[in-house]
Structure formats: structure tokens, C-alpha cells
Write a protein that binds this DNA or RNA. Structure first.
Lengths: 342, 342
DNA sequence: CTGAAAGCGCTTACAG
DNA sequence: CTGAAAGCGCTTACAG
């Protein structure tokens, strides 16, 4: 491996001059040309460790995702990778594997590696997070959740909930069940539901609420329990995975979707188009939010400034899993055929 | 940030001693105790750049995946991450985004960053790959494809094909269509098909072969074309995504699965359990191969030695998408109801 | 525009 | 077991 000293010698200049050339400092045209030639001939690439050791900064951005195998995380990473690359930064990924402790640990590791900044996709923000952010003292961008003290980039969760509420109402449903998740997750557990509730509040209808976990299996179990009891004509899951669990449970109970029961979700995962019937959902733009996150952290790193809150738009994707009811009058009696469970 | 000099001063010893303590050299019990206390009190962590600059090695393993949003890649990364962590290494991820050029570029970048080793999941291995490997001169492990000159870790593709061939035969199918992919992909395009062919070769049956791409959309288009023409009673897609495309096309044509047509795939993606009917497939253990890859590269890095070829077992997952035919006699006439296309 | 020198925070023979 | 010294490959004031 060639070093800067080798190049300097070959060019007959000092290391300083080579370094200056490399970093865009003022160098005469003649030496610039010479250096350009020699460097490409020798395929010289500066040692990043030495650079970072001296300059005390790197071109790496640490990205902490809750898990590696979720549609949302994958798409967001793709977006981040893309925009970071275009700005000359490298994306480092750490998976927290759904554990808060590992999220904290990942922040420490990244800080120690002197990344230029951190993008974090948390499910919750605890005091421990806050204090870790504080003493990491690094540019930080939150994605998917917001916090008043840190730049945040979120999906329009409230809006998404509202859209879905209005949509099912418009389809004539008057007895609605929302299967949500813990309110400790502000974005999904609270905002999404709040938007939904407010849409329903403007109409005469009955709304029930239940809670389950993020895991499809759990949602299915909950649904197996709930479905035989409820008289709701539509069930809205707080995420597509929950909706998918609902569909599986409904299949198992011999319910026809959307004939006997309508189902909808949130997220726009690719799987929602594969299932039968295709799932009506609110589509989130994970790729977009990823790109914005990349831009954002670069700006935070280079200019130490970015909006405290940025949002990424959502849109409803109407497919086949929600039925149009003719009878739009509120009624407890179901009119869609009986529930012939297995 | 504290440096090793600070710690040395506080302990009243030299930097050398602190460094020796840190790296497991011989240090007296007394100073060992003292150092231990001071370091944890001061929360001292060595600067990785300085370490790497001097020691000329790092504890990072570069992992190059074809894409970030595939089930196979995600699971494999999870496995790699896990075993690397347990050995004190860090996983660095680069996505080639399906482009060979970016795969090559990623190898260069990792080499420049002085990673300890590289795990590569290629779709093909070109001469350009080989020459890049050669001058990167780094421990390298191939995952999912094999090459005679480099340690490789593969799924039992041939075996998988054989299993599936035998299974559909056992189910009484005698007219079979295999929807494969380009043979430039040795693992998927060649081996999987070869195993399948050899299983069929042992019985009297008719086998047709067609080709499509890896993308579900393409598979669906191909299927829309193929389905109305073929008289096969079962179609086997070379990947689950292809099988999923087949299912979608069959649905669109009004074919009932598995009543009118049986469908099977390879991979064991999580989505195969969600679709209706659940897909019969050969399940690959991506998590396992990921863990093995982690172990393997660590061994290559530390002992410069590992088997040239290691395999990860597969198993068939029988679900609902393949029908049992009563009539096991070869016959061109289908007996499963007519094809009432849309 | 250019160069000499100091220094970033470690590790590693070498001598004791 | 311990320390002084050199050096890894860069960057950055500083002086010219």
C-alpha cells in the first residue's frame, strides 16, 4: 500500500501539498496535474484511519433499525443508503433486534467509532435514550417517532388514521373495530388511532377498540378470540401485519372477506398485494422517508441545522378487503350472512 | 474523551503498560486491579482509529448482499450479525442493489476500510469478481454460490430440487412444469433444476421447462401466458417469488389451487404461509447459513483456514398448494375440472 | 502556493 | 513485569 509520503516523493513535493491537493486546498495548476496523474497511476487511496484519527471525523452515518427483516426497515434502509451514497457518506447498520438495551448499546458503539451522525428508528423513546443521546453528543435524527428535543422525521400517522376512518365510514360501515397496539408507541399506538377516532367522532357509528402486539401470530390469536364475539362489519388493524393476522383468523373461522367481514390495515407492505383478497391499507412511503432521513442527517452533520419535525405523506390504497355496505344506517344487525365457523 | 495517556497518568504507569493490560499482555496483579478500576471509572474506551492505524487490522467484517429487501438476505444478515457479535466482530453491510458493478465497488471500499474479512452473497461470479478478490487480498467467504477457488457456503440446492421432484411425483403428478431462471445463476438456475430433473428421470412422466426472471411480476406475466396452454397438473417455480407470481396468475385466470392446478416453490419465505392456499415449498435455512457464515469468516480471519465447501440443509414444507392425484397413471387428459379463465 | 514540524491515540519491539 | 521511544499515515496551523 502506498502512503502519502510515497506520492509526495514521486511528485517531488511535500506531504502537506499532497494532503492539500486531496482536500481541495490551494495548489498550483502544475502540481495539481502532476499529482492527479501520479495518484491515479499508483491507485493511491488515503488510509481512512489515519484521516479519521487526525481529522477526528468520519464520513459514516450509523443507522439503528429495530430489526433487519421488516418491510418498513428494509425500505427505509434502501432510501437512506441511496441518499447517503450520493452525498459521499457510508451507511453503517446496526440492528437492535427489538431490544431497547441493544439500541442503547448501538448508540454507544457508533459514538465510539466516531460516526458523523446517527439515524435512529426507535419504537419508543425512554429516558435512557435521552441520556444516551446527550452524552453521545452527536448529530441525531429520529425516524418514525418524534421527540420535541430532537430532529424527527415521521410518517403522517394521524392523517393516516383519519383517512382510514373516513374511508370505512364512506363505505357504509357503522360498526367498526380497531385492533391497535400499546400506546407507548406514540406513532402507531397513539397517533394512528387518534386520527381514526377523530374521523369516526364526526359520524354516528359504533366503534370498539382492542389491543394486540405487533406480531402477526399474536394478532391472529387475538382475532380468533374476538371475531366470534364482535358484530363489527369491519376490523381495522393498526398495522398490515395485524391485518394479515386478522385475515388468517377469518379464513380459519370460515369467514369470507370482504363478504362476511371487511378488513384493513396500515403500512402498505408488499405482502398486502399478495394475499387474497388484496388488503386495503394506508400506504406509507418508507423509501421516501429513508431518502429524507439521509438528506437530513447530512445536513445536520454539515450545517448542524434541520427542521425539528418533517413529515412524509401517506395515501390510502383501496383494494379488495373492504366491502361497500348498501345499508348505511346504523344497525346492530349484520346483514352479510351468518358466521359459519369451522 | 480520555486517552490512554490520561489513564496511564492516573494510574502512575506508562502508556505501554495500559496498552498491555488492554491487550492481555503480562501485567502485575496490583496494576491490573488499579487499571481495571480506573478504566471503568473513567469509562475509557480506546480510539478504534488509532488502534487500527497501528495494528493494521480491524474487527469489522464486510457483508455484501444483493439487496436489502429480500427475505433471504434479511435472514442471512440476522444470522451473520448474531454470530459475528458473539465473536467480538462487527458486521458492516453494503447492498449491491442487484448490480455487479456495485458488488465490485463494495469489495474495493471494504478493502480500503481494512475490514478483517468479507462475506459475499453473489448471484453470479464473473472474472471481474475473481480479479477483484485477488487484489483485495482479504479473507473471503462466498454464501449461496460456490467457486472452486474460494471458501463457499451453500444451500443444498441439488438436494432441494430432488426432494421437490420426488414429492410431486409421490403426489401422483405425471405432467409437470418447472418454471426456472437463468442458468448463469448456478445455485438456483442450474443445481436446483438439475436435482429436480434427476428425480423425475427415474419415473415415467412428462416434464416441461420454461424460464422467467426472479421478479414476481415477471413470473406472473410469464404464467399468464403459460397457464392457458399447459396441461401440466403441477407447476414448480424455482423460487417462492416465482411460485407466488404463479398463484396470482392462477387466481386471475380463475383457476382453483390446488384443485385445478398445483403450485410449489423453493425458499420458505415467510410470505408463503400467508398466501391462500399456503404454499408447499422447500424451506431453506437462511438464519443457519448466516450463522455459519459468521463462524466461517471469523475462522478464516483468525486461522486462515476453513473448508472449501460447506452446506446448509434444506427440508420440504408440505402445505396446501399441491394436490394429491388419485390417478397415478400417466395421462394427458386432465381430470381436475376445466380451466374457466376470466 | 509550499514545506517543516508537531501531533492525533494507539501498539510494539527493545532494553532493563 | 515495566518504560522510553519510534512509528502507523494522515492533517493542520505556522511561517515563508
Amino acid at each position: 500500500m502506498k502512503t502519502i509520503a510515497d506520492i509526495a516523493k514521486m511528485a517531488g513535493v511535500s506531504k502537506s501539498t499532497v494532503s492539500r491537493y486531496l482536500n481541495g486546498g490551494s495548489v498550483s495548476d502544475t502540481t495539481k496535474k502532476k499529482l492527479e496523474r501520479i495518484i491515479s497511476e499508483q491507485k493511491y487511496v488515503p488510509n481512512t484511519f489515519a484521516q479519521s484519527l487526525k481529522a477526528k471525523k468520519t464520513a459514516m452515518i450509523g443507522t439503528i433499525v429495530p430489526r433487519l427483516d421488516s418491510f418498513a426497515a428494509s425500505q427505509t434502509m434502501i432510501g437512506i443508503d441511496e441518499s447517503l451514497r450520493s452525498h459521499g457518506y457510508q451507511m453503517l447498520i446496526a440492528s437492535a433486534n427489538q431490544e431497547i438495551a441493544r439500541e442503547i448499546e448501538a448508540i454507544h458503539n457508533f459514538a465510539r467509532q466516531k460516526v458523523a451522525g446517527i439515524i435512529l428508528m426507535p419504537a419508543q423513546i425512554t429516558k435512557e435514550h435521552i441520556s444516551t443521546f446527550r452524552d453521545a453528543d452527536l448529530p441525531l435524527l429520529l425516524v418514525g417517532q418524534q421527540h420535541p428535543s430532537f430532529p424527527s422525521l415521521i410518517h403522517e400517522d394521524y392523517e393516516a388514521g383519519r383517512m382510514m376512518g373516513e374511508y370505512v365510514l364512506n363505505q357504509g360501515h357503522r360498526h367498526i373495530l380497531f385492533l391497535g397496539v400499546t400506546e407507548r408507541d406514540i406513532a402507531v399506538g397513539m397517533e394512528r388511532k387518534r386520527g381514526f377516532q377523530e374521523a369516526l367522532a364526526r359520524h354516528e357509528c359504533r366503534a370498539d377498540y382492542a389491543e394486540t402486539s405487533f406480531r402477526m401470530q399474536d394478532a391472529m390469536k387475538t382475532a380468533l378470540h374476538l371475531l366470534p364475539q364482535t358484530e363489527a362489519t369491519v376490523i381495522v388493524g393498526a398495522t398490515d401485519n395485524i391485518a394479515l393476522g386478522l385475515i388468517k383468523a377469518a379464513h380459519q373461522l370460515g369467514l369470507r372477506i370482504p363478504l362476511d367481514l371487511s378488513i384493513a390495515g396500515f403500512g402498505g407492505y408488499d405482502t398486502t398485494e399478495i394475499v387474497t383478497p388484496a388488503l386495503t391499507t394506508v400506504t406509507y412511503n418508507y423509501l421516501d422517508i429513508g431518502k429524507k432521513a439521509g438528506e437530513g442527517i447530512v445536513q445536520l452533520v454539515e450545517e448542524a441545522d434541520w427542521d425539528l419535525l418533517t413529515t412524509s405523506p401517506v395515501e390510502i390504497s383501496v383494494r379488495e378487503s373492504v366491502d361497500k355496505k348498501k345499508d348505511t344506517v346504523y344497525s346492530i344487525t349484520k346483514e352479510t350472512g351468518s358466521n359459519e365457523g369451522t
